[in-house]
Design a protein around this nucleic acid. Sequence first.
DNA 1: ACCTCATGTGAACCGCAATTCATTCCTTGA
DNA 2: TCAAGGAATGAATTGCGGTTCACATGAGGT
Lengths: 215, 215
Amino acid sequence: MVYRRTQAVVTRLEDNRARILAAARKLVAEGGWRHAHIATVAESAGVATGTVYRYFPSKAELFAEVLAIVSRRERDVIAAVVDGDGAPPVRMRGAVCAFARRALRGRRLAYAMIVEPCEPEIDAARLEWRAALGEEFVRLIRIGQEQGAFRAGDARIAAACVVGAFMEALVGPLAPEAFADERVADALIDQIADACLAIVAKPPARATSRIGRIA
Amino acid sequence: MVYRRTQAVVTRLEDNRARILAAARKLVAEGGWRHAHIATVAESAGVATGTVYRYFPSKAELFAEVLAIVSRRERDVIAAVVDGDGAPPVRMRGAVCAFARRALRGRRLAYAMIVEPCEPEIDAARLEWRAALGEEFVRLIRIGQEQGAFRAGDARIAAACVVGAFMEALVGPLAPEAFADERVADALIDQIADACLAIVAKPPARATSRIGRIA
DNA sequence: ACCTCATGTGAACCGCAATTCATTCCTTGA
DNA sequence: TCAAGGAATGAATTGCGGTTCACATGAGGT
């Protein structure tokens, strides 16, 4: 064999791959899933359609990776807050606010990542992402419970509630047709954080949360 | 014109339509969206493929209507609780529990309705349903606020948080591969209700929810 | 009975974008 | 410079299931 991948080639390959991913991401961030076609991605990345398939086995896997990359960043941000210092309630508020703020800044992308209807295969990847985000909150809630700052209970359920709460609350405001106003956004974030904190916070002495309990 | 729809025919037409809808619903409830094909629906309803199109303009609209029907029932159940008597916290707990209990009973269908990846068009209908459900909670929260039982704030945001919280908390347990145990389910429902109640309940005197606030 | 129009049928069609692959273009090492 | 194989190309193919439509069947009215 007289051909072996030289460093230059390896670099170029990696660069291509990165450019394809970047193009895919950019397209989603601009036009949502509706415009995320392989042909468009290829063109935007400056390669031929077929070339995309030299790097990714299928459309679903390409976009799943885009999702994974974006997700990972968000997860890292949250993880940093979770592992930071400050009392658990402070961290909870910080994590939720961080997510909400970042989502509202990169609205179109966040909308696509969180709610925009998309192909089933990509949607499945979203579920995994949510689960991963949830894990960070599970960790945080367990920390809070150990320190006696949060109320007892299954941390996974509480985490799911927290994640669901802030995600759903962002759905409306993230919609492309919604208005984006700094003031409104701040108030929104604040209230979402209140809600999330309330989910895990210890109830007052005479447990309000017992009201209306079935059993 | 020598032909006019007689009552018998009208009845038969309505019956066909109903059977198609029922078949569609049944298929989703059994196999999820994956098996929800027009041809399958037609067969299951005892009509020809083309006949389905005499009653519904497209696959998306057929399933959107299925979704609407199932949704409406859920919404009505919640509306009944919202308009019932009892203090707002009791109603909140009741509404959430009712939804969760019903969802866990009709697991497969609930899973499809809430999370299962599906075609974009159908997914869009889901968003509307969630919004509709949310409205009931907005009403409830406003009632609670007026009575001074719930804390102040934008009811729509709080409602979104509540809906997101219980929906997301149900995602894991509703997944087809998850186990269904009565005891576990009851505990789950109870904890979800706690979380949702906490979102809207008034905080204790020295507001815990102020902890860690940004501004 | 029979004409007319509505309803039902299901095999064929179609649209669309993902995916493929024969071909061309590059890169390597001798 | 060249042989050998890797990488890139993009037009053609594919596949799939929704949708159509020419025809059959059945109902209504005279």
